[in-house]
């Protein structure tokens, strides 16, 4: 067996494991669906009562937008906590003695779980938004692009969580970093309001960050998805995906060097 096929085979096994675990966690999924329904329904109501004339949006489309951003936010697990626990308990030592990258194992396993939860939340959310608004704001032909953009977005969020988890090597408790990261995603990603409705200077900052590639850009496809918009979303997501992967590799290498030098 070649090295590449061994790594791919093991990664696929971890991915299947994550998918299977997430699919068995029915209470977790129902809890997510319940929490997910509240902001979607509340914002659908708020947008109905908000004067949107001249904004380029209508309440029904904004309900679909919020459904998309919420699905992406609720899909990833809390892998930073798993990594924190592995490092602080010393369990990472056993993982480091295996011929398989510790970080890759977590990314693959969490990607499997994230993929399952995202699929379930998008299906449920589409039903919820469809029933609430009585309309579907996009053509069926762009559904694969919308789903793919949501998958890339959730994966990006997962990669940044891995980086935050690895910070445990230096700070011991990465939770504060995670909460800051999460609030930045909510604000500069446009969790409830599309970035295009922000004041120009905040919108420009938000658009240039990975937060927009995680929330606003993929969710905006639920509102208006032409070929140009789709291409632009994937271009930005591709750029941030490459940078996030480089960041994961760099932080992982630095954390491993620290463990090898100073112990876990």
């Amino acid at each position: 067996m070649s090295e590449t096929s061994r790594v791919l085979g093991a990664s696929a096994a971890f991915l299947r494991l994550g998918w299977r675990d997430a699919s068995r966690d029915r209470i977790g999924l129902f809890g997510r669906m319940l929490l997910f329904s509240i902001p979607v329904l509340i914002f659908a109501t708020i947008w109905q009562a908000t004067p949107l004339a001249g904004s380029g949006y209508d309440a029904d489309r904004l309900a679909w937008y919020v459904m998309m951003t919420e699905a992406i936010v609720f899909a990833p697990g809390y892998v930073f906590r798993e990594i924190e626990q592995d490092i602080n308990s010393g369990a990472i030592e056993a993982a480091l003695t295996r011929p398989f990258a510790y970080v890759l194992a977590w990314i693959a396993e969490e990607a499997g779980g994230t993929l399952f939860r995202l699929s379930a939340l998008l299906a449920y959310g589409s039903l919820l938004a469809g029933i609430t608004t009585g309309m579907v704001p996009f053509a069926w032909t762009v559904v694969p692009a919308i789903v793919l953009a949501a998958i890339v977005a959730a994966f990006l969020a997962l990669l940044f969580q891995v980086v935050i988890g690895l910070l445990t090597a230096w700070v011991g408790t990465p939770a504060p970093a995670y909460w800051i990261w999460q609030k930045l995603v909510f604000v500069f990603g446009g969790l409830f309001i599309p970035l295009t409705l922000y004041p120009a200077w905040i919108r420009d900052i938000g658009m240039a960050t990975p937060f927009a590639a995680i929330l606003y850009r993929p969710a905006s496809l639920a509102i208006a998805a032409d070929q140009v918009a789709i291409a632009e979303v994937f271009l930005w997501q591709g750029l941030w995906l490459a940078l996030a992967l480089l960041l994961v590799a760099a932080v992982s290498a630095a954390a491993t060097r620290r463990f090898l030098r100073e112990g876990v």
Partner: peptide, 29 residues
Amino acid sequence: IGILFGQRSQLWYHLPVKDSLELIARIYG
């Protein structure tokens, strides 16, 4: 090399033993 840390598990707690061992087999190719 094979390593056993008596106080730390190399197995996945929620998985059946067989699944853990098969996953380890995949890791080692």
